[in-house]
Write a protein that binds this DNA or RNA. Sequence first.
DNA 1: TCGACCATGTAAACTGTTACATGATTGT
DNA 2: ACAATCATGTAACAGTTTACATGGTCGA
Lengths: 174, 174
Amino acid sequence: MARSNTLKYIILGLLTRKPLTGYDIKQTFDKEKAEFWTAPFSQIYPELNRMLNNDLISLLPTSDTNTRKKTYQLTAHGREVFQNWLQLPLAASESTLDNDNFILRLHFLGHTDPTFLKNLLALRVKTLNLEITQLEFELTEVVNHPEQYGRELIIKKELANKKSDVKLWKKELK
Amino acid sequence: MARSNTLKYIILGLLTRKPLTGYDIKQTFDKEKAEFWTAPFSQIYPELNRMLNNDLISLLPTSDTNTRKKTYQLTAHGREVFQNWLQLPLAASESTLDNDNFILRLHFLGHTDPTFLKNLLALRVKTLNLEITQLEFELTEVVNHPEQYGRELIIKKELANKKSDVKLWKKELK
DNA sequence: TCGACCATGTAAACTGTTACATGATTGT
DNA sequence: ACAATCATGTAACAGTTTACATGGTCGA
């Protein structure tokens, strides 16, 4: 996922909830990473400084002067950039939504915006159905090749996963 | 998956089937990528030259001198390196096998080595069960946080996927 | 002859990982 | 006093993507 600057948007997303330090952000990654993402300090701290320079975040003023701790909060600009990024996949007509971009956005949603959630789920279901059609086709091709038995198992796994996802999101859309 | 030099092993794996050019390898990626992997020419060609220098592959002698086409085949050394890489996750006791490393190895298996396939599947099932336990726990935590509704959905999706995988691999183990 | 596809590469920029470096705070 | 954890960073390296560059072959 090069060039998409994912880390920046994850940090923005985490800061929409509450102000955090770089250390807090790393803790959150370690706790939630299984379904999500991870990044080392050496990536987080430089990114925070870049974001500070770009006016996406600002230092939370603190009376505690004798500590090196830096707590960051979103600026108005940062909040706007994050909202635009959230909406991005829904902007283009005829668009699709891959799993990473879907998961990334879903992660930050609560119960507050059910319409947006439904749009996101609907677009993902549409994309999944396209992928399922393609995989069904690939399966018919590979069954004649016993030397690609491993690949056949992978396709079956992917099909089962995607069908399970469609079922889950459709349930949520009701 | 940095540092693990995945591309090298994928190329070795593809060449176990038959000799290929860099262009052929790219074609294979494009065709099989959905369940698998992708890489641009700018990554493939330099990698092939590195592998040639390391005696993992060699140029297939061809009478066709007036073409720039380069067809590569595995050397004995390359074949050995690939076999060692395949077995790697099974070597350590108390090891686990993440999805990427599992899929990567599974992709190259045919019907020829059912024992190895079963060992691989068994290790993956073991790992999946550990991950499922962890996700069940995270789910009990997140249900009290309506502001993390999106994350709750992600955990549910991951749980459904992993349980589906366990079912599929256990069926294959019988 | 012209466009699609075959065929191989280099350069620059970006993303991500590992190793290294430093020092403060908190609990036992 | 000592260990664990809090807290912030730099440097070097590895992997990946995008843009650029070049030329051959084959069918309509």
